[in-house]
């Protein structure tokens, strides 16, 4: 079976989830053979206990929830409850997920919320439950409450990269760029080499730059964003999002420079420790490199070359659009 049974299902694509769900009945059947139901001392002899087994159960559970196979999900959940007990953190979180996914209306969601809150009153250190609660609040549209819940989590546990990333996303959706940047910086402090987070920070800075009116501030933000993308592709070769951002920001920077040449000089202020803006030459060079690299990635990935698969289809077509647009401009 080449299906990624052991990978966390958030990393698998939707078609894989469907395939996993289709496999679930045969897997569950293979787990419940006659000798597994022997009474206690004998059942020790036929023990198939392993970490992988329960990982598979959990992944099957998540996959079948994703694809709407609630009965299968319930079976997996029951097995997990039977093994780890109802009070296990992870099992509670999974149970809450099940309640959330199968909720028909507000009441169903409220039941999940009640479950979380009961657990949290008893023990506020169950961070997985607190995170679920924040996620539920967010999906219910209560953004302010979700942000508050996340801030509370982070006050108790300020080194939680996952919560910081979620908070950044939440702030970004609200247009609070400064807060989003701060949160993403916190993520980077926990995981300094996360290239996707560098690129994400670059994206946020780019968005912020495109909303800013003042030219000097805009140039500063663009330069910062440009450098973040540089760092991201420095950490990860052939990172499509990184090169995309690199090309985009460098193009914008060049445009900005050609329109406002004289303002370039005074943007660097050594007292705040900001870096001097990159020289126009370097930006041009990197723009050319990014264009070439993007072209290479798009070409190789769309011809299905070996070792070049795995790029997201949407990202590839966006990169193609960007390339087409820039060539149009040159022709004009």
């Amino acid at each position: 079976m080449s299906l990624p049974l052991l990978q966390p299902s958030t990393a698998t694509s939707f078609p894989t989830s469907i395939a996993l769900t289709a496999q679930a009945p045969s897997f569950l059947k293979s787990q419940s053979t006659w000798f597994a139901a022997l009474p206690y001392p004998l059942s020790l002899l036929t023990n198939t206990e392993s970490q992988e087994k329960w990982q598979i159960y959990e992944n099957l559970f998540l996959a079948s929830l994703r694809t709407g196979a609630d009965a299968t999900a319930w079976q997996c959940l029951e097995a997990l409850v039977a093994r780890f007990g109802k009070t296990n953190d992870r099992v509670i979180a999974l149970h809450g997920l099940y309640l959330e996914a199968t909720a028909k209306d507000e009441h169903g969601l409220a039941a999940a919320m009640r479950l979380y809150e009961e657990v949290l009153i008893e023990d506020p250190t169950k961070f997985s439950i607190r995170k679920r609660r924040a996620a539920l609040l967010r999906s219910a549209g209560k953004t302010a409450e979700a942000a508050q819940a996340l801030v509370n989590i982070l006050d108790a546990s300020p080194t939680d990269a996952e919560a910081w990333a979620e908070l950044a996303d939440l702030y970004l959706s609200q247009g609070a760029f400064d807060q989003a940047v701060f949160s993403l910086e916190e993520v980077l402090l926990v995981m300094p080499n996360a290239w996707n987070m560098h690129a994400k920070l670059g994206e946020v800075l780019y968005l912020q730059a495109s909303r800013t009116e003042s030219v000097g501030e805009k140039a500063r933000l663009l330069a910062e964003s440009f450098r973040r993308f540089c760092r991201s592709v420095e950490l990860c070769d052939d990172y499509l999002r990184g090169y995309y951002g690199l090309k985009l920001t460098s193009t914008r920077l060049l445009e900005l420079r050609s329109t406002s040449q004289k303002q370039q000089q005074n943007t660097s202020d050594p007292s705040t420790g900001d870096l001097a803006p990159p020289s126009t030459e370097t930006v041009k060079k990197l723009n050319a490199i990014a264009t070439a690299k993007l072209g290479e990635i798009v070409r190789r990935a769309s011809s299905g070359e070996k070792g070049w698969d795995g790029f997201s289809k949407a990202e590839l077509s966006a990169a193609r659009d960007l390339l087409d647009k820039s060539t149009l401009k040159i022709e004009r």
Binding site: A156, S157, P158, T159, F182, E185, L188, L189, V190, P192, E224, T272, G273, D274, L275
Partner: peptide, 21 residues
Amino acid sequence: QRYLLRSQGLRVAFPQISKSA
């Protein structure tokens, strides 16, 4: 403990963020 960890993380990973941050 986590706040202590945070400071230790800051001491290790400070190059990732700008001087003002």
